[in-house]
Lab assay of single mutants.
Amino acid sequence: WLKDDEATHCRQCEKEFSISRRKHHCRNCGHIFCNTCSSNELALPSYPKPVRVCDSCHTL
């Protein structure tokens, strides 16, 4: 799980985070992405409801 202060850019699109481009953790891989690159939800065994995942984890 990557800490918020360790990420300054989206792991996928590499756009810089700002007040309007917020950080979101993928609940599967733990990396930090922008909203555009992590707008999917997936049912994971460790969560009772579908949770936010990055595009890469969603296509696995």
Score class of each variant (00 low, 15 high):
7 A>F: 11
51 V>Y: 03
56 S>K: 15
36 T>P: 14
51 V>S: 05
10 C>W: 03
31 H>Y: 09
5 D>P: 03
37 C>G: 03
7 A>C: 10
11 R>P: 11
10 C>Q: 02
28 N>L: 05
13 C>T: 01
31 H>A: 07
46 S>T: 11
14 E>R: 04
51 V>L: 05
51 V>W: 03
48 P>K: 08
13 C>M: 00
50 P>M: 08
39 S>C: 00
8 T>V: 06
15 K>Q: 10
28 N>T: 05
56 S>G: 15
33 F>Y: 12
14 E>Q: 09
17 F>C: 01
49 K>F: 05
50 P>Q: 07
9 H>Q: 06
39 S>D: 14
55 D>V: 14
33 F>C: 13
3 K>H: 04
29 C>T: 01
48 P>Q: 11
49 K>R: 12
18 S>N: 09
14 E>L: 04
27 R>I: 10
57 C>P: 01
33 F>T: 06
3 K>P: 00
27 R>C: 10
10 C>A: 01
15 K>I: 09
14 E>P: 00
12 Q>S: 04
43 A>E: 12
13 C>A: 00
60 L>V: 07
15 K>E: 12
39 S>Y: 04
43 A>Y: 04
47 Y>T: 11
32 I>V: 13
22 R>F: 07
17 F>M: 03
8 T>C: 05
29 C>P: 01
9 H>R: 07
46 S>N: 15
31 H>M: 09
9 H>V: 07
58 H>S: 08
39 S>H: 04
39 S>F: 05
49 K>P: 01
26 C>E: 02
21 R>V: 11
57 C>Y: 01
59 T>F: 07
1 W>I: 14
11 R>A: 15
12 Q>T: 03
3 K>D: 03
4 D>Y: 08
28 N>H: 13
34 C>K: 03
8 T>M: 12
20 S>L: 08
25 H>Q: 14
46 S>C: 09
48 P>V: 07
41 E>I: 05
47 Y>C: 01
42 L>M: 11
3 K>W: 01
12 Q>I: 10
42 L>C: 13
28 N>P: 06
13 C>P: 00
51 V>R: 03
8 T>Q: 12
46 S>V: 06
11 R>Q: 13
13 C>W: 01
19 I>Y: 05
18 S>D: 13
14 E>V: 04
4 D>Q: 07
13 C>V: 00
40 N>S: 12
16 E>R: 04
18 S>G: 11
38 S>H: 03
17 F>E: 02
23 K>P: 03
44 L>D: 14
21 R>M: 06
12 Q>G: 14
16 E>G: 08
58 H>P: 02
9 H>Y: 05
36 T>V: 15
40 N>D: 04
4 D>L: 05
33 F>A: 03
8 T>W: 09
35 N>K: 14
39 S>P: 06
35 N>R: 14
16 E>S: 08
56 S>D: 14
39 S>I: 07
6 E>Y: 07
9 H>F: 09
23 K>S: 08
8 T>L: 12
14 E>I: 08
30 G>F: 00
56 S>E: 15
26 C>L: 01
44 L>T: 09
59 T>D: 13
15 K>N: 10
11 R>F: 11
3 K>E: 03
37 C>R: 03
41 E>S: 08
18 S>A: 05
11 R>I: 13
47 Y>F: 11
19 I>T: 13
2 L>N: 12
26 C>Q: 00
57 C>N: 00
42 L>F: 13
22 R>N: 06
43 A>L: 13
48 P>L: 06
50 P>H: 05
37 C>E: 02
24 H>K: 07
45 P>A: 06
17 F>V: 02
5 D>C: 08
10 C>G: 00
24 H>G: 03
47 Y>V: 11
27 R>Y: 14
42 L>P: 02
19 I>L: 11
10 C>K: 01
59 T>L: 11
21 R>Q: 10
49 K>Y: 05
46 S>Q: 12
33 F>V: 13
50 P>D: 06
56 S>P: 15
57 C>W: 02
33 F>I: 08
40 N>L: 04
18 S>P: 04
17 F>A: 00
9 H>S: 09
42 L>G: 11
10 C>V: 01
19 I>W: 01
1 W>Y: 15
58 H>D: 03
22 R>W: 08
6 E>G: 12
34 C>M: 04
24 H>D: 06
56 S>C: 12
31 H>N: 06
25 H>L: 13
23 K>V: 06
16 E>C: 06
48 P>N: 05
5 D>M: 13
43 A>P: 12
8 T>F: 05
44 L>C: 04
6 E>D: 10
40 N>Y: 00
6 E>N: 09
31 H>T: 04
36 T>A: 15
33 F>E: 02
41 E>N: 08
41 E>G: 03
43 A>Q: 12
5 D>Y: 06
44 L>V: 07
49 K>T: 07
59 T>N: 10
60 L>S: 10
35 N>A: 15
9 H>M: 09
47 Y>R: 05
12 Q>H: 06
26 C>G: 01
35 N>I: 13
47 Y>L: 10
51 V>F: 03
1 W>Q: 15
10 C>M: 00
20 S>R: 10
30 G>D: 04
32 I>T: 12
40 N>V: 05
38 S>P: 01
35 N>P: 15
59 T>G: 14
4 D>W: 02
51 V>H: 00
23 K>H: 05
5 D>L: 03
30 G>P: 01
58 H>N: 06
9 H>L: 06
37 C>F: 02
24 H>E: 13
11 R>Y: 14
11 R>T: 13
21 R>L: 07
7 A>M: 05
20 S>F: 12
16 E>V: 06
23 K>R: 10
29 C>L: 00
13 C>D: 00
19 I>Q: 13
59 T>A: 15
2 L>P: 00
19 I>A: 08
42 L>S: 13
2 L>A: 12
6 E>I: 12
55 D>N: 00
25 H>S: 13
7 A>Q: 13
1 W>A: 11
22 R>D: 09
8 T>K: 11
38 S>K: 02
58 H>Q: 13
36 T>K: 15
8 T>E: 10
60 L>H: 06
59 T>P: 06
47 Y>E: 10
36 T>N: 15
